[in-house]
Design a binder for these strands. Sequence first.
DNA 1: GTTCATTTCGAAATCGTTTTCGTTAATCAA
DNA 2: TTGATTAACGAAAACGATTTCGAAATGAAC
Lengths: 348, 348
Amino acid sequence: MKPVTLKEIADQLNISVTTVSKALKDYPDISKKTKALVKELAQTLNYKPNAFAVNLRTKESKTIGLIIPEIVHHFFSSVIKGIVAQAEKKGYLVIILQSNESYELEKKQIQLLLRQRVDGILISLANGTADYNHLTDVLAQDKPLVMFDKIAKLVKCSKVIIDDRKAAYVATQHLIDTGCKRIAHFRGALLPQNSIDRFLGYKKALLDNNMPYDPSLVYICECGDNSFEEGKMNARQLLKDHKDVDGIFINTDLVAIGAITEFNEQGVKIPEDIAVVGFSNWFMSSVISPSLTTIDQPGYEMGKAAFKQLYKEMQQVKNKEAIVYKDIVLETGLIKRQSTKEVLLGEV
Amino acid sequence: MKPVTLKEIADQLNISVTTVSKALKDYPDISKKTKALVKELAQTLNYKPNAFAVNLRTKESKTIGLIIPEIVHHFFSSVIKGIVAQAEKKGYLVIILQSNESYELEKKQIQLLLRQRVDGILISLANGTADYNHLTDVLAQDKPLVMFDKIAKLVKCSKVIIDDRKAAYVATQHLIDTGCKRIAHFRGALLPQNSIDRFLGYKKALLDNNMPYDPSLVYICECGDNSFEEGKMNARQLLKDHKDVDGIFINTDLVAIGAITEFNEQGVKIPEDIAVVGFSNWFMSSVISPSLTTIDQPGYEMGKAAFKQLYKEMQQVKNKEAIVYKDIVLETGLIKRQSTKEVLLGEV
DNA sequence: GTTCATTTCGAAATCGTTTTCGTTAATCAA
DNA sequence: TTGATTAACGAAAACGATTTCGAAATGAAC
């Protein structure tokens, strides 16, 4: 019933615990005969080293913590999958926690993970997080911390991101290239870096094309939950406020889908009356009608890259080297679908 | 740099480690004065008990394992969220692993979790899993194991499920009530219990309504990945094989969405020519056009219930009581949307 | 037969807590 | 004064593994 220990194996073979331990780890000072004996018995008894004991000695937990704002989310669940897959390959287990976009929770969870003595932490920040003491705490303990997607530029640690600004620029440029003259932007919440960068990309694209930037065309959502309803609401408001808008660049696919639904219901033609570009390439976007032109945001790869970087840093800590921080920027692409028109050839 | 230990606190206060430990845990044989001193110093030094040491002593890890076939999946990510939320409330951490629908991986992961000495395991079986020795291994160690959604009826442990059979019956009955005369079924893979039960519900509904059961109308997919493409493929095949089918009950929403997409592309009218009912109520289903009538499968609640049951059993083990297994069946509901017609009133 | 090297094993310390069982000193009753 | 009681603390043994440092046994070399 009780798990088998080294001692039990030792007793059964009339040798010491030391010898058993060494035999299992192929120490050179143990004879081949005893090694064989030990390994066989360990096998038949189904011996599994007690992770706590090992970790206590070696100061390694082979475990990392992962904090994300929301689990039920196409992009984030892809990231989780990438992380978990990569971690398992390297023999690491992943403890997952959801911050619910709450700063307070996030802080508590970091403490939890530190107490659990995880070897490293992967985090995508909550929208509400503006103070970074809980993060610098981690770094002060020489514990690797890698931020991904929703990051804080000010914190000195590795980051895995996409170039939100550039991607937003490309998205907006596509609207312009397909003939849109007056382009709105749904930017979601105010704070997170992504929101800021995407907005800046949108703005720059306008200016680079000698189109006026009109703040009243930028819809901010205090709630900032990037929801389907947010999209519907904003779309409804837009139709009231600005009849002349013929293109929208939207922060997140889900919001874009909300907007499209509203437009569909109100009989607004997409892309003829209004063209729409989303962001993230949720699976859903390929399936709705009209299908959504969007920016591909590689969640799985991001998770993979984030873990790889964390792993590198964990190795550095292990070898008592200094941690080398790195900013990793993943490529994105524009996925053209039905919600935008064809690119004009003659003009421009 | 190194984490603070009891010993450091003890040294600073010139008392013993024992006293520090007791003071922090409010033992009655420590004076109020020392307690105050200890607690204060612990606070300022930011002391966090070493989880390994604690676990090694107490034989409790306050950690559970979770194995699911696929993380990027609306239903499963809802389940994860329910589990993680509930676990955190009770002070448990969740280690998440993805079996990728592979029996071999599932087996390895169980071993991993046992070695990690988790206090309990939550699992939704891989499609390929037909042998249950790895599961009975867990139970033999008196370690609580709760299965959810994709279960093995033969394994003696607690299970959290929905009544797939009944739900499928309701779905099929709805097609019949809305006037469908010849109803097909896309059942996905052959093996998993859900697939079987949903098929049986479908069949029973037909028979109870004196409609012939025609095996050629049941589409099985060897690949069994419940994918969008599977839906498109099956739909294409169906249109070739059976021009007279006017309703389909489909195993999973995603497959149903694939089918709908194919029908849309081929100009088949939904629900006039063919009515469609899905299963699971993915968010997507409310958003596509036409929106999909489906069965609501409460993922979050299932996760919550699964953890609650696991928690109960972990308490039982702690109190050296016998584990009481329980089958928990969650309610489902039919969500009527545009992919099926209105219920006929006059007839039947 | 002595010396030295090599092979093979074990004793013991250690990781950081928890908990049992004493021990000491102070207090109180008689 | 003596004995019993109580309050407050500590020594030490776990938990299960790892690793350092020796020790014993064997063989080789002279």
